[in-house]
């Protein structure tokens, strides 16, 4: 379940962690947009380097490494498919793009507490119900990862061998894990709903908040930096300066 390592928030005191979630949202949008804009090796490598530096500043290289390790099979699969179906260079570029995207999202999820994300969305005028559902969903990713591990343990104790058989058989082997996982998730959702209601969820039209997020000078600085670079790249890519990256 190491794929989920990097989507698990860990409290740390670093420059990146202390930025406002909205700043980081802009960061991740810019980074992933740029990853999708370019389809050449050098720009994608540059994005990857920037991501690495950001994650290094956030002191989260180890967690990031776990995600990449978890993604390894997917990356190999994507590489092999594109290598043979299109061309070797296409394979390399697709893998780089995937890496760049995964790292951009890692920067965000490793450094933003789910509660702060909700608060950021609310302050961006997104209705509370939607913002809250999203933060609940994120909150339960590690729980479900842990649960699927214990279900796997339980079924293995009944002789289930996941790696046995043909490709179709292998897919069917996961049925005894998926069914309890889904049933338990639905049960839990109902329990959460009841517990929310019993704590007065939605009782008042207008909520008040204990914490409010405030943008600081460093936030504005980072946002300006990212938006400016984005604008420049946009111009380069689609309008004027076509010779800068080619």
């Amino acid at each position: 379940m190491s794929v989920f390592e990097s989507f698990k928030y860990k409290r740390k005191d670093t420059f990146i962690h202390n930025l406002d979630p909205r700043t980081k949202l802009i960061m991740v949008i810019v980074l992933s947009a740029v990853s999708l804009m370019f389809f050449e090796i050098v720009p994608l490598l540059i994005i990857l380097v920037i991501n690495t530096i950001l994650i290094a500043i956030a002191k989260s290289l180890r967690e990031w490494y776990y995600t990449l390790k978890g993604l390894l099979y997917l990356l190999i699969l994507v590489f092999v498919f594109n290598y043979f179906l299109v061309s070797p260079i296409f394979g390399i570029i697709t893998v780089l793009r995937l890496l760049a995207l995964a790292s951009s999202f890692s920067v965000f999820f490793l450094t933003v507490h789910p509660d702060d994300l909700t608060q950021a969305l609310i302050q961006m005028k997104i209705p509370f119900d939607y913002a809250f559902s999203l933060s609940l969903a994120i909150r339960f990713v590690p729980t479900i990862a842990q649960e699927s591990q214990s279900i796997m343990d339980a079924q293995m104790s009944r002789g289930l061998e996941l790696q046995k058989g043909s490709l179709i058989q292998k897919a069917r082997n996961y049925l005894p894990i998926l069914v309890p996982l889904i049933v338990n998730s639905i049960r839990r959702a109902l329990q959460i709903a009841e517990s929310l209601e019993s704590r007065g969820f939605g009782a008042e039209e207008k909520r008040t908040y204990l914490y409010e997020l405030k943008m600081r000078f460093s936030d504005y600085l980072v946002i300006c930096l990212f938006l400016a670079s984005f604008l420049l790249l946009l111009l380069d890519r689609y309008f004027l300066l076509q010779y800068l990256f080619s």
Partner: peptide, 23 residues
Amino acid sequence: YSVAQLSRKVGYVFQNPDRFLFA
């Protein structure tokens, strides 16, 4: 030995039956 092989000798009953039942 694999878990499947050892499970013929050692039966492990987990605490929560809901982690178990699917059929």
